[in-house]
């Protein structure tokens, strides 16, 4: 059983405007998304602005309620959990956000920041809190004297370590990492990515890793899911998807990734136009207006995720070649 399973998750936001807040329709930020996060593994979520990856993270963190669909934690439906069960879930799922300058209270000392989840959630002796805070600082590679300092006395990379220590205070099983290194300097990013990998190995953490840096996601993830306009278009083994993407959008996305050497010549697929508004997503396959391989049926039928070369891809190009997809019809 997966640690966390999402099945057909849907999140709509109403769009209102004008003096009397007339309903102007709805934005389907997430539209029928399914995935699983295994213990001690990383699911990477990639896609461009507005594809729904942050909304997906909020649904997992229970900062938003899904319009439809189910999230299961160790097999139990979150919607059916009682108060105690929900508290347990919220302790087990923590988050680290992009900007360590905004996510730490400038008036609190680092020791208090890290201890806050412990103090509010557990009845602990002061000495036990101090012991655990010390252990957390050690775990993320900060010196013990850091506890008496304020966030402004730290650099971006060290602040992100503080944010990670706080996220680990309640010994979570899953950590949502929303762009955890994109605000950091290049020379610091590798430090934090290595730290996250070490913590995963040491503590058996599962990660939901969201980033726009494709190479970083491929590096960190076991499984990667590519989202476009609220849907997963391709999901599978991270290295396979990065090396041989199947969905035309994934192909374009990875072909647009910057090279790591001037001799690395990738055939660049430049997509026409921009991502359409999620207020009026195109009919059929949502990618068809920009797809270099679009066929007549792409504008009519929405493709379903089906197995292609050991991963799932939602594209009509593979209808003919995959017997499984044909069977399901």
């Amino acid at each position: 059983m997966a640690l966390l399973e999402a099945e057909d998750l849907v999140k709509h936001f109403p769009v209102q405007s004008g003096l009397f807040s007339r309903d102007r329709g709805r934005v389907s930020a997430v539209d029928g998304v399914s995935f699983a996060i295994e213990r001690s593994q990383t699911l990477g979520l990639v896609g461009e602005s507005g594809c729904g990856k942050s909304t997906t993270a909020k649904l997992v963190l229970k900062l938003e309620e899904p319009t439809a669909g189910v999230i299961r934690w160790e097999g139990r439906n979150l919607a059916e959990l009682d108060g105690a069960g929900l508290r347990e879930y919220r302790r087990s799922v923590q988050a680290v956000f992009q900007d360590p300058y905004a996510s730490l209270n400038p008036r609190m000392r680092v020791g208090a920041i890290i201890a806050e989840p412990l103090v509010t959630n557990e009845r602990l002796e002061a000495s036990e809190v101090a012991r655990r805070t010390g252990r957390l600082l050690d775990l993320v590679g900060l010196p013990a004297r850091a506890r008496d300092l304020f966030p402004h006395e730290f650099s971006g990379g060290q602040r992100q370590r503080i944010a990670i220590a706080r996220a680990l205070a309640l010994e979570p099983r899953l950590v949502v990492l929303d762009e955890p290194v994109s605000a950091l300097d290049v020379s610091i990013r590798a430090q934090i990515l290595n730290l996250l990998r070490d913590l995963q190995a040491q503590l058996g953490l599962a990660y939901l890793f969201i980033a726009h840096d494709l190479a970083a996601v491929a590096h960190m993830s076991h499984t990667v899911a590519v989202m476009y306009l609220g849907k997963i278009v391709e999901i599978g083994d991270a290295r396979a998807v990065a090396a041989r993407p199947k969905h035309p959008y994934t192909q374009a996305l990875f072909s647009a990734a910057l090279p790591s050497h001037p001799d690395e010549q990738r055939e660049e697929i430049i997509l026409a136009g921009e991502v359409p508004s999620p207020l009026h997503p195109p009919a059929g396959c949502r990618f068809h207006p920009r797809c270099p391989h679009a066929m007549a049926r792409c504008a009519l039928d929405e493709p379903r995720l089906g197995p292609v070369n050991g991963r799932l891809t939602a594209c009509h190009l593979y209808d003919a070649v995959t017997p499984e997809a044909a069977e399901r019809g």
Binding site: S155, G157, Q158, D185, V186, S187, I188, R189, A190, Q191, L193, N194, R197, D213, L214, A215, A216, A218, H219, M220, R239, A242, A243, F254, A257, S260
Partner: peptide, 24 residues
């Protein structure tokens, strides 16, 4: 040299990144 080593590359698998210690 360190900057070039510290960057994850597509297709380099799970090689550990060579981080630069310290701060700018």
């Amino acid at each position: 040299q360190a900057l070039l080593e510290s960057i994850p590359r597509l297709g380099d698998g799970q090689r550990r990144l060579a981080a630069i210690d310290g701060q700018p």
